[in-house]
Nucleic acid binder design. Structure first.
Lengths: 418, 418
DNA sequence: CTAATTTGTAAACCGCCATGACGAAATAGT
DNA sequence: ACTATTTCGTCATGGCGGTTTACAAATTAG
């Protein structure tokens, strides 16, 4: 009756995993974690009524989660309601943490997020990575990871996983960077170049940005299109609260949607791709500016200062985005389009022409467009939170590891290799 | 009781239905049904090993399904293998049936499909429906449905649900036709105009065509794009074995993807939509032919005869399709594109330019394109099978109704209103 | 004809949630 | 103040569902 989407989607009923009582237990543990995580401190009774189990059943589930260190008892609630007050439960601020990392064109960043979603440690290193080979870059990243892991350890956190955002296409294996034009990396197995003791997951920066919007955005629906541009233009397609990855993992390549079929040639072999009109390079050229560092900030400043050439360039980019998004909206019927990444800073000058184009080409009410509040932080946060979500999705799996790692064993391993 | 069409994806663990033992039982019943349905006659032991349960557990599940009349015991297998031969189980050819119906521009069709997937009854009525108001058309359809239900009843089948394919946009409620340009229907609640005793589900013809391809196609993968053109051009977006419907149910509107942003105006308000180049009307005009009945057959005949104007028109339509599909493929990264419906008959003349365009605009190996073998039968079969799938997806729900309907009560109700 | 293999079923067992009852801790009413 | 009421968390009991173990039945291999 259900089909899957995000990572752990149960395939059709025919091929789902055997449905046994242990599986039921695991799913119910997950439901408790998700409920407490999403709706703040909650009593056992409140959780029970929300997930449709009895108080007794929830009690045993909670006991198990507390023993595993994933939930904490905060003490009695102080309610105005009649009846015995419940004992507030909250997700633990100690225990497993999600480590997120980002390989940017001119920076590296790592952070640790606890189960509550708080950032507990972070490290950044500026420096141009474009054109450097993967090995030294990832060696630096590994050093940052170890630093953050050590910081987190000092706060009682152990790393439950590492997720790495890269600006490029990543295969569905979650390890291999197929093509990262801005880094000039091709078919690189990042999994082999990252800390072996901390199994890494690699994904596209746009995808993690979209997930961050999904998980952290205030009013983000479960179906939307998250458009982000760094140098290329990528989109995260979120359907029913999960990421649409595509067969090879290449879904969301909005930058190569044809906008004008006879337009200028593109590196992809096509003509008139969106990237030729709204990509960073194209916009800078149209604005009469040279490529360089912090080009987005430059564009925003110039536009704010009233530079006509820049404004026109952004206006035209918005038009092209509107055309490409019309196609995407017709195909996917999302509830919302979110402009994220570098686009969020340029939104004031992109939006008018973008929305006009979208409205002009849509029969009914056009798809609303909003601007991400996360900005450039999105991918890093999305990566870290993806690990946290994995813990919430299967707390039992983590509980098993917790025994081994509560003693700090993983931390030791990571540290001793530093 | 609802006959839910294939839903996109299960919600996250946080909002799933309470995970109780009854739910487990239901899912395991469904897994047995799916396995037997997909892999032909199978012994209990074979089913057990496939779904990962023990033989004992499968035995009780099978007993229940046999008592409900959903499975049949065919008798001992005749194997060359050592050991006691198993007793072959097959999906029952009696019991619940899926009723599929299609409202075409110039025909109505209804069929009944049993759990085995066999068509057991059908009725067609030719006659132009364009421009007629919904009430008389659906009254005729209802008569056909009753006729088919009566025929099915004579073979020991009772209707488990009715699914109706219409050439237009259908809201997510599965009842309301928002816009069917070729029928000139708007905001019509078909649910209210169909047999009340047989809860109907309404969906887009393109969606049902895509589902038919998914369920009945020989080599169809779980991620593909099924393009079908009758008068408009629609696509079914199939992701991980499920249909992507979009927020309002309007996903897959490939016909209004911009191909040339400054092209001719379209009824949707846009310019240069695919429909302006590859829609039936546009192609006929480009070929120098008049609109009329069986225009697709005419096009195919003329093209086969070597009519240059027709061939050029189809070549150009293929090019436009290629451009629009390039965008779709970049966005969704499907494993395959299938040309269905009217396009399948014209494929020989569309494919060369279509594939050339797709290949030219793709960096790596282009997305393969195939032609549906179901042709115009797709939507009707998809509709009927969607009901069958709903039964396979939750046999327990049907088993409850089976008691009431085994006596022919539903059939009587349907019949007595005739 | 015997040994080996596989199937289907029955009996005993275990895990998981539901049910119902109870004490604990708060509010509301007198 | 004191009691009734409400709600919370827990315990004991029970039902349900799949597993384990054992065994008879039916076939092939030697």
């Amino acid at each position: 009756m259900t089909a899957p989407l995000h990572e752990a989607h149960p395939a059709g009923p025919g091929r789902a995993l055997p449905d046994t009582q242990q599986g039921m237990r695991r799913r119910n543990l997950a439901r408790v974690m998700h409920t407490v995580s999403a709706e703040g401190p909650l009593s056992r009774a409140a959780v029970a009524s929300r997930i449709g189990l009895t108080r007794a059943a929830v009690s045993t589930l909670v006991d198990e989660l507390i023993r595993s260190g994933l939930l904490e008892e905060l003490g009695p609630e102080r309610p105005g309601r009649v009846g015995r007050p419940g004992s507030a439960l909250a997700v633990s601020g100690r225990g497993p943490a999600g480590i997120g990392a980002e390989v940017g064109v001119d920076h590296l960043a790592v952070c640790a997020v606890d189960l509550r979603g708080e950032i507990r440690a972070r490290a950044v290193r500026h420096g141009v990575n474009r054109g450097r080979s993967p090995e030294p870059v990832l060696a630096e990243l590994t050093a940052l990871v170890r630093q953050v892991v050590a910081e987190a350890d000092a706060e009682g956190l152990w790393p439950a996983g590492l997720a790495v955002a890269v600006p490029g296409l990543v295969a569905r294996d979650g390890r291999t960077v197929v093509r990262a034009p801005n880094l000039d990396w091709h078919d690189t197995d990042l999994g082999a170049l990252l800390p072996a003791e901390l199994p890494p997951t690699v994904d596209n920066e746009a995808n993690f940005g979209g997930l961050a919007e999904l998980w952290l955005g205030e009013t983000t629906p479960r179906d939307f299109l998250h458009v982000s541009a760094e140098i290329g233009i990528g989109a995260a397609v979120v359907v029913d609260g999960g990421l649409l990855r595509g067969t090879r993992g290449f879904a969301g390549e909005l930058g190569h949607v044809p906008v004008r079929p006879d337009g200028p040639e593109c590196a992809c072999g096509g003509r008139g791709c969106l990237e030729q009109y709204a990509g960073e390079e194209a916009v800078l050229r149209a604005a009469g500016l040279e490529p360089g560092t912090d080009r987005v900030g430059l564009l925003a400043n110039r536009a704010a200062d009233g530079d006509e050439a820049v404004r026109r360039a952004l206006h035209d980019a918005g038009t092209a985005l509107g055309i490409a998004l019309t196609g995407a909206v017709n195909l996917l019927d999302p509830q919302l389009v979110v402009l994220g990444g570098a686009l969020s800073g340029l939104a004031p000058w992109l939006l008018p022409s973008l929305e006009a184009e979208l409205a002009r080409r849509t029969a009914g009410p056009p798809c609303p467009v909003s601007v991400s509040l996360l900005g450039p932080e999105g991918p890093l946060l999305g990566a870290a939170h993806s690990v946290v979500r994995a813990v919430l999705d299967d707390p039992a799996a983590v509980a098993e590891r917790a025994g081994a790692t509560a003693t700090g064993r993983t931390v030791d391993i990571v540290a001793e290799q530093a």
